[in-house]
Simulated assay, not measured.
Amino acid sequence: MPLWHIHHTPDTLTVQDKQNFATDITAFYTRFGLPPFYAVALFHEIAADSCYVGGVSMPSVRITIDHLARQLDDPDLRRQMTERLHDLIAPYTHDRGLHLEFNVTEVPRDTWMIAGMFPPAAGSDIERGWAEANKPLPY
């Protein structure tokens, strides 16, 4: 699962922005065969007087992304993925003049459960069934 925590100051993202952003996040991962329900985006509004960058309060977005369903061992592939994520994020953030930072943490797959089950193997028939049903199915 990709779990996105999107911390933002007030008036930086509208309700429609959040919906569109979450839809774009989901589309990014389903291109690689992940079930749509794996993609989780949590939006956290942080008061302007509680967000400082370099000691200065400013409109900003800080995103942490946990990758549980897939990990990349190759540094070049990780760099490409990070650049693609930047391209996905940019229209909602720094293209609007907002300060943006994000990072990706890759979590070992064997430390993740969903609906009381370990996820099926990446690319397996079971995972494809989960993607088609858009929910975890017992196996």
Rank of each mutant, 00 (worst) to 15 (best):
R31L: 09
Y52D: 06
G116W: 06
V107T: 04
I46E: 00
L85H: 09
W130N: 10
A41I: 04
P59H: 01
N103H: 09
S60T: 00
E83C: 09
L42W: 03
I126C: 10
Y52M: 08
D49W: 06
G116T: 06
V15R: 08
E132G: 03
A48S: 14
A131Q: 11
I63C: 01
D73E: 15
A133R: 05
P2N: 12
F28G: 06
V61H: 04
G116D: 11
F118H: 14
R62W: 08
L88V: 05
I6D: 00
I63M: 02
L77C: 08
H5K: 12
A47Q: 07
M113I: 09
E101K: 04
Q16S: 14
K135R: 15
S50W: 08
D87Y: 04
A122K: 13
P138C: 08
G33C: 13
G129W: 07
P108W: 08
S57L: 04
R84M: 13
V61G: 01
L3E: 03
N20E: 15
F32D: 07
A48L: 12
S124D: 00
S60P: 00
A122Y: 12
N20H: 15
A90E: 12
S50E: 10
M113Y: 03
D87G: 15
H67K: 03
R70H: 10
D17Q: 03
T64D: 07
Q19A: 13
A131D: 03
F32W: 12
L88W: 12
R62A: 09
G33N: 05
M58K: 15
V15E: 14
F43W: 07
P10H: 04
W4N: 00
A69R: 07
R79T: 14
Y139E: 10
P59N: 01
L72A: 11
I65T: 01
D24T: 04
N134G: 06
S50Q: 12
S50Y: 12
M113A: 14
H44A: 00
I6N: 02
M58W: 03
T12Q: 07
E83A: 15
V56H: 08
M1R: 06
